[in-house]
Each structure stands twice: as structure tokens, then as C-alpha cells.
């Protein structure tokens, strides 16, 4: 028992930090859901949510309340334990990844040396929530949705991995803070522009966003793996999905857009605290996510697989070879000069 007593203060601090991450994240998700619908509506010349609260801002909390008070329907032939664990896993994993995201110089819950690998590992676990949901529902459409989703996420993880490798070769560290600091002179999206595009599109596919939302293609699969879910478990899936989307936006920011760094290091810009820049950049990337959702039609499944394996994989492999060659030849690699 005295182990817990001696570490009590540390435990309380960690819990406090967790809340400090979780609450802004939740607010971020609510705003992201709202922004997503508003942008989508604006592209289609609709108004979007505009009734509940000022500018319809309270639409998402109102929807959330509605879901909380709805009955949780457990299908009779479902595997009930796995059925209920699946959404919990999805949400927990998507939040867990945020523990290593640095929002400002030195402001990060866990500044671990293998930060980028940790995020990659956690996001590769995300597929289990979907697979378990699809299987446990014991129904056709969820199962197809889960199979599609698993194949899709595993395929695009490969190219994401190679893109991360190209960035890491320019940095020389797996620590996320050091990845940001390595972009002091130039943000990586300029020298590695093709990889930035590949990463962005792969991130869309990895988070099952349109145009790659085949796992929940409503014209074919009802709602994919979420078909049998209602009430709170459905909300957990929704939140997990959006936290993952925000995570991918944050990853794009950290890997390519210089994290918390201002665009140019001059007085009025570098006086603004880093987390403001970080949030601004994440918002910008999310805006691109939302715009893509609004105006790109859904891919066919074989086209999706072709893009992943026949276009992105060779392209990112070529980029790895090319980047390492250039870094080696011009002695630009970290620790070589």
C-alpha cells in the first residue's frame, strides 16, 4: 500500500494532466463535428446546423444528450461482451495516442523517445475496435464493413510508415518534439512535398474519411460496422473516429507543418504562444479534411486498393531511397556534417 502512498502526488499530477488533455480534446471534437457539418453545408449552399444555440453551436451537445438518453440495443445474436468492448477500445485508443503529442515546446504529457512509433502502434491498434464491432454484431453488413475497413487500414498504414521514415531520416530522432524542432529552418512540407500529399491522402484512408469511407458506405452497407450500434456505444464510435481525425491532423502538423513553430521567426509572430500556432495549423488541416469530404466522390473498392498498393507504396518507397541518397550524398543527414 505504501507504494501508492509514496507515489500519490505523482499519480494525482498525471491524472490532472490527463484531464488537461481530455477536456480540450472533447471540446475540439464537438467543434470539429460542428465545423465538419457547417463546411459541408456551405459547399452545397445549405445552412447546416443553425437552430440550436447561437449559429447552431449547441447542435452537437444536443445530439450527444439525445444519444445518452437513448436505449442501448443489444442484438440478440450478438457476442455481447465483444460488442460492448469494441467502442470502448476505439475511444480509449484514440485518446491514448494524444499522450505524446507536443502542443508547445516542453508541453507534453509523455515526452518519450519513440513517440512517433508509439502513435503508429496505437493507430495500428485502432483497427481492432472496428473488426471486433463488425464480427460481434453477427450480422452481414457490419461484417462486410469491418472486413473492408481492416483491409483498408492495413494497406494505407504501409505507405504512412514509409512517409514517416522519410521524415525521420531528415530528423534523426523518433521524438516528436525533436521532429518539430528540426523544422526550425524549413517546414518539411516544402522539401518533402510529394510525401506530404501521400501522407494527407493516406490519413484520409486511415481514418475512414470520405472519399475512402467504404467501411460505412451507406448506399451499399447501411452504416458498415456501426449498423447495430445505438445510444452511447454509437457516440463512443463517433467520438473515437473524430479524435482519430484530429490526431491525424496533429500528426500532419507535427511531421510537415512545423508543429508549434511560427511561420517566420520574427517579433509579432513568435510572441504568440506555441499552442496557438499548433491549434491554428490543426484547424487548417482539418479544414482540408472537411473540404475533401464535401467535394470528392467516394472511391470504388478496387480503386482504393490500387491507389494504396500500386501508387502510394512504390512512390513512398522511391521517396525513401531518394531522400536517403540525397541526404547521404550532400552530407545533410543529421550527425553527418
Amino acid at each position: 500500500m505504501n507504494v501508492l502512498q509514496s507515489n500519490f502526488f505523482e499519480l494525482i499530477t498525471i491524472i490532472f494532466y490527463c484531464i488537461l488533455i481530455f477536456v480540450p480534446l472533447l471540446v475540439g471534437v464537438v467543434l470539429a463535428l460542428y465545423a465538419d457539418r457547417k463546411i459541408w453545408a456551405a459547399v452545397q449552399k445549405r445552412r447546416g446546423p443553425n437552430v440550436v444555440g447561437p449559429f447552431g453551436l449547441f447542435q452537437v451537445p444536443a445530439d450527444g444528450l439525445k444519444f445518452i438518453f437513448k436505449e442501448i440495443i443489444l442484438p440478440d445474436s450478438a457476442d455481447k461482451t465483444v460488442f460492448l468492448i469494441a467502442p470502448i477500445i476505439t475511444l480509449a485508443l484514440s485518446i491514448a495516442a494524444w499522450a505524446v503529442i507536443p502542443v508547445q515546446a516542453g508541453v507534453v504529457l509523455a515526452n518519450i523517445n519513440v513517440g512517433i512509433l508509439y502513435i503508429f502502434a496505437i493507430s495500428s491498434l485502432g483497427v481492432y475496435g472496428i473488426l471486433m464491432a463488425g464480427w460481434a454484431s453477427n450480422s452481414k453488413y457490419p461484417f462486410f464493413g469491418a472486413l473492408r475497413s481492416a483491409a483498408q487500414m492495413v494497406s494505407y498504414e504501409v505507405s504512412i510508415g514509409f512517409v514517416i521514415v522519410t521524415v525521420l531520416m531528415c530528423v534523426g530522432s523518433l521524438n516528436l518534439s525533436e521532429i518539430v524542432l528540426a523544422q526550425k529552418n524549413i517546414w518539411f512540407f516544402i522539401p518533402l512535398f510529394p510525401m506530404f500529399i501521400v501522407f494527407f491522402i493516406s490519413a484520409l484512408a486511415e481514418t475512414n474519411r470520405p472519399p475512402f469511407d467504404l467501411p460505412e458506405a451507406e448506399s451499399e452497407l447501411v452504416a458498415g460496422y456501426q449498423t447495430e450500434y445505438s445510444g452511447m456505444p454509437f457516440v463512443l464510435f463517433l467520438f473515437g473516429e473524430y479524435i482519430n481525425i484530429l490526431l491525424m491532423c496533429a500528426m500532419t502538423t507535427i511531421l510537415f507543418l512545423g508543429g508549434w513553430l511560427p511561420p517566420i521567426d520574427v517579433y509579432p509572430l513568435n510572441a504568440i504562444p506555441g499552442f496557438v500556432w499548433f491549434i491554428l495549423k490543426v484547424t487548417l488541416v482539418f479544414y482540408m479534411f472537411a473540404m475533401v469530404k464535401a467535394f470528392v466522390p467516394r472511391y470504388r473498392y478496387d480503386q482504393l486498393m490500387r491507389l494504396g498498393w500500386k501508387v502510394f507504396l512504390p512512390l513512398s518507397l522511391l521517396a525513401v531511397v531518394l531522400t536517403s541518397s540525397i541526404l547521404f550524398f550532400f552530407k545533410l543527414a543529421p550527425g553527418m556534417s
Binding site: 512509433l117 503508429f120 502502434a121 491498434l125 483497427v127 473488426l131 481492416a150
Partner: peptide
């Protein structure tokens, strides 16, 4: 051995076990 831990998760859990489960 945090590198090995992450590789274990990425390779075995993230890729091999997914196909297995599949």
C-alpha cells in the same frame, strides 16, 4: 526496451494478428 515494445505492437499486433483475426 521501448523500441522493441513498439515494434512488437506494430508488427505482431498491428499487422500479423489482424490478418490472423481476419
Amino acid at each position: 526496451a521501448e523500441f522493441l515494445a513498439m515494434i512488437l505492437i506494430i508488427v505482431y499486433v498491428g499487422a500479423v494478428a489482424v490478418l490472423f483475426l481476419f
